[in-house]
Design a protein around this nucleic acid. Structure first.
Length: 426
RNA sequence: UGGGGCGUCGUCAAGCGGUAAGACACCAGCCUUUGGAGCUGGCAUUCCCAGGUUCGAAUCCUGGCGCCCCAGCCA
């Protein structure tokens, strides 16, 4: 690279000859790759882009506007400045890779003497555990590693939207991370914070059990059903309340019961009392297991009728509050649990002979059938909710139908317990 | 050993000669019918390193070191 480049044998061709060649190339007289028109700049330039760069090459490709009329195609450096100029752009922003190209961008525009926009380069907004390169993203789409450009795991705008990211959250994320010229990888946590912040204020709360465990309240009448009041959004009093059915047989989250609870576990366990959100206090009295596997398949409890709505007249406290659905009224819904698309913070950092696709997270999608409260029967595609204690979910805009609801998990809630438990295991 | 850039908290990021903003993360406490949310407090005596200039340097100068990008008829 320290040596000047070799000059093309055609470097000193006359203007007339070049013009003639241009016409003939355009007309389709030559094969792809057989002729080229270059700018005459400086073969000894340290910036390789200035060593007589190609301006036009022969390419027999159909264009969406001009069809097959032109058989040549301009190079980016030559065409880009002109497009910017014609559009009257004042500042042309691009990524750091093009810093080397700015002298050529300027050169081309100056030669033409046209309006000169200013090109300014910035670092890409990389996010950990994903990639931004459109070409690589395309590999994922074409290789069927994802379902399409709008796969909720994709960092594309359409993917983020389908995942449940609001424009407001995306904007606040962008404001938060800023932009500069140094290579960086923003932590995924920043993005997640932005969407939680927005959805916390706006989403309606609802109860949905992702991994159901049957609970029978032995002292509750078999044929009775009540309608309990539930708050739609504690962050927004104007969101009102709704009715949630309650009955003798319920489902709770499997992880909200532990036969052998660790320290500081506030949820259901033998002999332990918890609050069913907006329901009653219940105490676990019995556990039924599968004879063969030993797995807990059903939990029996008694409820305190005086705690309706979730508070006790005697003022006694329970530390845990868990969500639930009434077995008879709950509706089934498909729920898609997404996780990071890649297992490595920087998926592009690979060893020799390895490919970024080797860093794909094999568990980036888990599809389950959940039980959700009946009010969701009217959920429309694009609606977003907070499934209490679980996370934010939105109705899929592509696959959800009135008969079969499909929810996408946008992001989980912050999980302090998970942190505590992890710390306890250490 | 050519050219172009960049180096400030775990991650982003202000700062542009007057004595290190802010956010996320993290830690501690309060509060809580979501272990959510909220609230309070903590979190860079030091800015890649070494010299120098200056009353005063993350900011100026000199010299190092480290990282990224460029040899497509890709963008």
């Amino acid at each position: 690279m320290t040596e000047p480049g070799k000059e093309s044998p055609y470097r000193n061709r006359s203007v007339e000859e070049n013009l003639d060649l241009f016409e003939r190339m355009r007309a389709g007289e030559f094969e792809d790759g057989s002729r080229v028109l270059r700018a005459k700049i400086d073969m000894s330039a340290g910036n390789l882009n200035m060593r007589d760069p190609v301006l036009y090459r022969v390419l027999h490709a159909s264009h969406h506007r001009t069809g097959d009329k032109w058989c040549i195609y301009p190079m980016y450096d030559w065409a880009h400045g002109q497009s910017d100029s014609i559009e009257g752009i004042t500042h042309s922003l691009c990524d750091l890779d093009f810093e080397d190209h700015r002298p050529l961008y300027d050169w081309c525009i100056d030669q033409l003497g046209i309006h000169h926009p200013q090109q300014i380069e910035f670092a890409r907004l990389n996010i950990s555990y994903t990639i931004l390169s459109k070409r690589k993203l395309r590999e994922l789409v074409e290789g069927k590693y994802v379902t399409g450009w709008d796969d909720p795991r994709m960092p594309t705008l359409s993917g983020l939207r389908r995942r449940g990211y609001t424009p407001e959250a995306i904007h606040s994320f962008l404001d938060r991370i800023g932009i500069a010229k140094r290579d960086s990888i923003v932590a995924l946590a920043d993005l997640e914070f932005s969407i939680r912040e927005d959805l916390n204020k706006r989403s309606l709360r609802v109860m949905g059990v992702l991994n159901p465990l049957k609970v029978v309240i032995d002292n509750y009448p078999e044929d009775k059903t009540e309608e309990l009041d539930a708050i739609n959004n504690p962050e927004d009093p104007t969101a009102g309340t709704r009715k949630v059915p309650f009955s003798r047989v319920l489902y709770i989250e499997r992880e909200d019961f532990r036969e052998d609870p660790p320290k500081k576990y506030f949820r259901l366990a033998p002999g332990q009392e918890v609050r069913l959100r907006y329901g009653y206090f219940i105490t676990c009295t019995d556990v039924i297991k599968d004879d063969k596997t030993g797995d807990v398949i059903e939990v029996h409890c008694t409820y305190d009728p005086k705690t309706r709505g979730g508070s006790s007249p005697d003022g006694r406290k329970v530390k845990g509050t868990i969500h639930w659905v009434s077995a008879a009224q709950a509706i089934e819904a498909e729920v898609r649990l997404f996780d990071r698309l890649f297992i490595k913070e920087n998926p592009l950092a690979v060893d020799e002979g390895s490919d970024f696709k080797d860093n794909l997270n094999p568990n980036s999608l888990e599809v389950i059938t959940a039980l959700v409260e009946p009010s969701l029967i009217n959920a429309k595609p694009g609606n977003f909710y907070q499934f209490e204690r679980r996370g934010y979910f939105c109705v899929d805009t592509v696959d959800s139908t009135p008969g079969k609801l499909v929810f996408n998990r946008t992001v989980t809630l912050r999980d302090t317990w998970a942190k505590i438990e992890k710390a306890q295991k250490k």
